[in-house]
Amino acid sequence: MLALSDDLTVFGSAIVRGEAVSPLVDTVYPHYSVATAIDIYRNNYCGNLHDALASAYPVIYQLVGDDFFRFLARQFIAQYPSCSANLHHFGAELADFLTTFEPAQKLVYLADVAALEWACHRAYFADDAVMLDINKLAQIPPEQYSDLIMRIHPASQVVRSRYPINAIWHAHQSGENGDFHIELDSGTNIVLVSRIADVVQVNELEEDCAAWLHEIQAGRAMGVATDLTLERFPDFDLHAALLNLVRQNILIDFNPGVIT
């Protein structure tokens, strides 16, 4: 006799891997066979995952078109079955998948665009956080600025690429007319993903600002982070960087740090 867990394993193999249904499944339907019933279930399983993937990767979907996306989704679903009961977690590995997906190798930028889209997807579902309280900051005496340790919004992410993924992403947003022409060799991109209220923001980030943010993310105090950045980028403009990062809701809070 099969235990329930064995039954589920057999059923799971039939759905996820398309394996033949065990003859031990003896349910009877009036109008179709068990095999047909399993096919229907499997088809819906793949359909849901396809839709979840298309919703997380709308730019990839537009870049490659409907047929090719369906084709790559089928292969991806077979290779990376959904592991969470929450469909919003499905699709995290698409960028990895695309780097080795032979039929898409000529679209060299595709994996990086996928990485950017996943960052946006995660940003959308990241925890809420209140914006920087400017009045609270005003109460800090200037001699303590150097010790401040800034907190970053949980939606914040930085994505780097050799390709102009920022322009590619923006050209595919609703509101754009779809009439664009992008030169692939137009340069390296550092892209900052953030969220203001419930709207995900995608903006290019200067190299020096990215370096400073990296130090801040590592938990370094303002003074140290600024010193380290200035060593590498003597022209770094802290004033502009702060303004930019607060406007994009990246810096949301601070603590006074260790006062020596």
């Binding site: 537009q62 870049l63 490659v64 047929d67 595919h172 664009f180 030169e183």
Partner: peptide
């Protein structure tokens, strides 16, 4: 399948 989307617009 062959990609047939907006990728044509990326030189």
């Amino acid at each position: 399948a062959v990609p047939k989307g907006t990728c044509d617009k990326i030189a």
